[in-house]
Amino acid sequence: MIDSLPELSLLETRILGTLLEKQRTVPDTYPLSLNALQSGCNQKTSRNPVIEAGEAEMLVALDALKDQGLVREVSGGRVSRFEHLLEKALGVPSQASALLAVLMLRGPQTAGELRLNCDRLHRFADISSVEAFLEELASRTEGPLVVLLPRLPGARESRWMHLLSGQASLEAVPAASSAVVGSVEEMDALCARVAALEAEVAELRRLIREGAGQQWHG
């Protein structure tokens, strides 16, 4: 177990998150080759932000992670492969590492979002179990690994953020969250519009039925 918490770059956290994810979603190809790891880091889905890391950048970040005891290069075969050592290095259980992986890959999320997005890595029974592991990660004596961010105006729930890239910058949180708040407002507006359209369709169907009934009686 490492003595002090690391402060990782975006690419380093992306590499760790990708290794954690692929270990559970594609175990047959894990540990990952450099090419597979690069593709996983740069994929367009389930990633926020989306990045385009080159091979040279990947190698530099991997060397830094190896120096910190968070990644190991597996020898053997014609292609070098890499595996994470996060659970052992930080002393966290697999349930907690699944939450950290999703936070590293997708950014701050609510407990409900984390439960949904963690489904392929670990299936939590309910939101309470997610919150229990998050609170455990936040109250570690060795140093917190996650923090609960202040609830934003208009937001229904507070979001959690990992601290492997240093302390949370609360000034940056509203800007990063504006899209989430906006999406909630847009969804409410969309739901209202759908309800109005459904009512209109129902009224049209009623008028058609009445018209057909009058023609039949006539």
Rank of each mutant, 00 (worst) to 15 (best):
D67H: 08
S80G: 04
G154Q: 10
S39C: 01
E131Y: 02
L152I: 10
E185H: 12
S46E: 10
G40H: 02
S183Y: 01
R120C: 04
R72G: 00
L103S: 04
L65K: 07
K66N: 02
G91A: 09
V50T: 12
L207M: 08
V173N: 09
H84Q: 13
G76C: 03
A96K: 05
S139Q: 15
L85A: 07
P31C: 02
R156W: 10
A195H: 09
P49C: 07
R14V: 01
M187H: 09
L100F: 03
V181G: 11
R72F: 01
G154K: 13
A176Y: 08
V130G: 02
K88H: 12
P31N: 09
V50G: 01
E136C: 11
V130D: 06
V201G: 06
A172T: 03
F82Q: 02
R193C: 11
V146S: 05
A199R: 06
G54D: 12
T18I: 04
V147A: 13
L164P: 09
F82E: 00
E57C: 03
V194H: 06
R193A: 15
N48R: 15
T13L: 13
L116W: 03
H217V: 03
A199Y: 00
S97Q: 05
R14L: 15
R140G: 09
F133L: 10
V92P: 11
R81Y: 03
Q38K: 15
N35I: 12
L207P: 01
A132P: 00
T110S: 15
L145I: 08
L11S: 06
Q214C: 01
L34Q: 15
C41W: 01
R78E: 05
L197I: 12
A202P: 02
S9P: 06
R209A: 13
E136A: 15
V102M: 13
D67Y: 02
L121S: 12
A36P: 00
V181T: 10
A192T: 11
L134M: 11
V79L: 04
L204F: 05
R81H: 01
A111E: 08
P93M: 09
V181K: 02
Q68L: 15
E198R: 14
A111L: 02
D119W: 04
S178W: 04
T13W: 09
A101M: 01
R140M: 09
P93N: 14
S178Q: 10
P31A: 08
Q109T: 00
I15S: 07
A168L: 06
R106M: 07
P93C: 11
G77S: 06
R72I: 10
M1A: 12
A64C: 07
A89Q: 11
R81A: 10
G40M: 06
V201R: 15
A89K: 06
L204R: 13
K66E: 05
A89T: 12
A172W: 02
L103W: 07
E185G: 03
V184A: 12
E200I: 00
H217A: 13
P49N: 04
L90G: 09
G112N: 14
L148F: 00
S9V: 01
L164W: 05
L11M: 09
L148K: 15
R120S: 15
V71S: 01
A89H: 03
G91F: 04
N35C: 00
D119N: 03
L90V: 10
L116Q: 12
V173E: 15
V201Q: 13
E83T: 05
K22R: 09
V71F: 00
A56T: 15
H217W: 12
R115G: 13
I208V: 08
R206T: 06
L116Y: 10
